[in-house]
Design a protein around this nucleic acid. Sequence first.
DNA 1: GTCTATAACCGGATAGAC
DNA 2: GTCTATCCGGTTATAGAC
Lengths: 213, 213
Amino acid sequence: MTASSQEVPTGTKTKILNAAEKLFGQHGFDATSLRDITAEAGVNLAAVNYHFQSKESLIDALIDRRLGPIKQKRLQMLEAAGPAPALEQIVEAFLAPILDHDLPTAVPLIGRVLSNPSLFLERVYKPHLGETVARFSEALEKALPGLSTEERFWRVHFMAGAMTHILALSGVLPLMEGSGGTLDRATLMARMVTFLVAGFRASADSPHILEKC
Amino acid sequence: MTASSQEVPTGTKTKILNAAEKLFGQHGFDATSLRDITAEAGVNLAAVNYHFQSKESLIDALIDRRLGPIKQKRLQMLEAAGPAPALEQIVEAFLAPILDHDLPTAVPLIGRVLSNPSLFLERVYKPHLGETVARFSEALEKALPGLSTEERFWRVHFMAGAMTHILALSGVLPLMEGSGGTLDRATLMARMVTFLVAGFRASADSPHILEKC
DNA sequence: GTCTATAACCGGATAGAC
DNA sequence: GTCTATCCGGTTATAGAC
């Protein structure tokens, strides 16, 4: 690690990361070429392969840059809530570090990363999410002792899905009718917490039976 | 429309659609070449551009093929529930036509389609989903008169997100610990309905206030 | 560390024989 | 309707000058 790896955000490496985050978030990984990225960043094409080794490694670097701090903040908020956090605190600690992201380009990128089935298990969940989910699942077990392990597993993924969808579609949802036009983060957070907390509290022992039509 | 457009599922056109659905679902649109598809289908490369005009049109044909019938089934289930359906019936009518899909390759494809921000608004939502969502939103308004339009809008998208995430990750979620190993559709449906119905019923007039840690 | 130039390859689409 | 052969543009990655 040389002095240049953490310098002010005008270095070539940082410019590449920022441009890549923006374009990957807008158009997806495969639809964005390294040429697009270097043009946006105002740097030379060969700089990508010098600072990162390949396009795939660049993607991993972007994932690291965002999911690393998010993991820290999530666990920190969960710990700050004490040894037996309330359900609302657990859900907030899960959502806030992602939804409250200050950097506007980070949100669509994180949406792409979390909703990409090709990346998810090996390059996102295992290295960056698995431990966090396990910790939150433990906290949920204390807060909701009536839920089975499977029930908890699926509800955590319902929560993750609701959040991920909003992140991924953050660019288009405000354009739709009925949304209220803007995407105010604090209000959105409150709405998600209300919805998800109620979902988690639902009694699981009334498995609804489907009937034909 | 000639006689060949709706023949037994061994025509070249159908073989291409089936192979494309499988590979697009597994690897995504950009990561799958027309050569991959024609190899999988056992047909000639040029057949794709003869039957469909371009790769983009092929994708639209795949979207049509699955989302058309789903729209019909959703509206049919909603109508069958009478003029003032219960909340459970509304949620079931929204989820069942997608989650209960018999064709195993359709589920990952639909997950890719619904979670792709680049396709979503113009090529998925407006042509195939908007009218359905409006009808379901009306039904929800009757079932839950206390909710504001914005609140309903966002909760519908929380529901859509939870469902979409499960579809998109259907290939990997069963591999994770705590899932119970299998993905039994009836049980999953029941779990989602329980969770989402409780979320919809949550009272909205207690907007939770976020505090710093 | 940064650039130019290029290698080596793969993609979608099409022309034209059959 | 189906095939072969090919065009042509774009892709990642690298070699080597500065």
